[in-house]
Each structure stands twice: as structure tokens, then as C-alpha cells.
Design a protein around this nucleic acid. Structure first.
Length: 201
DNA sequence: CCAAAGATCTACT
DNA sequence: GTAGATCTTTGGG
């Protein structure tokens, strides 16, 4: 089986395109200490956020210290803290200067399940749906924080966090409204692998 | 300086 | 189904 890194060019298009193309790809988190396994999850749920013209986006009212990564080159991790408790992982899209991004909302665990469970504070044998279905859960399972990961590349082989492609073939993609937002709530910018049971509630 | 909101999750009724 | 946790960032006075 062959695994291939995605390139910065993959993330160059507008976020609605990238969000759909990311479905079925693998999020790979390297170990950070000897007792960790490599954690791998297949992306099953994403949301697209534009910059200008999207009132729900962090970049909507222009560049700030928090969202600066979004205005940089494509293929970079944008990590922020939400509700004082949970991290969310996005990947920047579009050329430098344009601030689109894709929020990773859920992965189907495919490797390193016990490491994910430990990070989540759960027993090793729990239902794998509890591991990384939901953006906050995903970051906890992959041990992703703003301090360590905001601004890092996901397209470089040496990175602790990468997105890779295998032979998996996507069938149907469903488009629905985005979750948990109040502004621009009617746009169909949430994408899922249709019928996949690891999509968040 | 202060107030309020926020791309969530868990526990409990 | 609803509430509470918890804190950074942002915008207004």
C-alpha cells in the first residue's frame, strides 16, 4: 500500500473545493514520546470557511493576531481555542493573502487507537466513535494544541502532523449546513462521507 | 478597561 | 434536552 503526502498546491483552491477533496484522506500524527503510537485517522467530516464574504469565518473582519496563519500560504495548520476548553484544527487554503480554510471536524481512527483513547481519558476498548468524532475530540485524540501546532505545515514529511493520500476511493459526499455557527448558517459548507458512522452528531 | 461571544463537550435531569 | 465548564480574543467606551 502506498502513502503519499499532499502538496501545498492541493490546498491552493478555494476552501469548499479543498474541504470536499480532503474527505477520505489520512491525518497522520507522529508520536511525541516513546509510549505513543503514530495516530492515524481518515477524514470523514470537514467544513469550509472563506475569508471575505463569509460572516462565520474568523478572517471575516480582516487579519488579527489570532488568525494571521489564515492569511499566509496554503497547507498550514490553524489551531485555536474555543470556549476556553477545546482546540479546533483547520488547514489554510488559497494563495498567500487570501484567508480561506478547512475545519477538520471528524476522523475515523485507523491506527493508534489506544494512544488516542489515553489522550482522551477513555478506556482502551471504548467505542472508536468517541475518539475523534467532533473537532474538539479530534484535537484531543491527536494531542494538537495552539502553542505547539499553530502555523506548522501539514505538507512537509518532517512535520509531526501531515495529511496523506492512500488508495481509498470516496463514494458519495453529502453537503449540509455548518455546525455551531449563528452567522451564515444557511450555507451548505459542511461536507461528510455519506453514511459514514464516524461523522459527529 | 471591561464585557461578551465563541467553528464544543460532558454530565445530568 | 439543558446547563455548566473555562479562557482567549476582540471590539467598544
Amino acid at each position: 500500500m502506498s502513502l503519499q503526502l499532499l502538496t501545498p498546491e492541493f490546498f491552493q483552491p478555494p476552501p469548499d473545493q479543498v474541504a470536499q477533496r480532503l474527505l477520505g484522506k489520512l491525518l497522520v500524527r507522529k508520536p511525541e514520546n516513546p509510549e505513543d503510537e503514530t495516530a492515524i485517522g481518515r477524514i470523514v467530516e470537514t467544513e469550509a470557511y472563506f475569508g471575505a464574504d463569509d460572516a462565520a469565518a474568523h478572517a471575516y473582519s480582516g487579519q488579527t493576531p489570532r488568525n494571521a496563519v489564515l492569511f499566509g500560504p496554503p497547507g498550514m495548520a490553524y489551531v485555536y481555542l474555543i470556549y476556553g476548553l477545546h482546540y479546533c484544527l483547520n488547514i489554510s487554503c488559497e494563495p498567500e493573502g487570501k484567508a480561506g480554510c478547512v475545519l477538520l471536524r471528524a476522523v475515523e481512527p485507523v491506527a493508534g487507537l489506544s494512544t488516542m483513547a489515553r489522550r482522551r481519558g477513555l478506556q482502551p476498548g471504548v467505542s472508536p466513535r468517541l475518539l475523534a468524532s467532533g473537532p474538539g475530540r479530534l484535537c484531543q485524540a491527536m494531542a494538537i494544541t495552539r502553542r505547539q501546532h499553530n502555523g506548522i505545515s501539514v505538507t512537509h514529511a518532517a512535520s509531526v502532523l501531515t495529511v496523506m493520500e492512500d488508495e481509498y476511493r470516496v463514494q458519495d459526499i453529502a453537503a449540509t449546513p455548518r455546525i455551531g455557527i449563528r452567522k451564515a448558517a444557511d450555507r451548505l459548507l459542511r461536507f461528510t462521507l455519506a453514511g459514514n458512522s464516524f461523522v459527529s452528531a
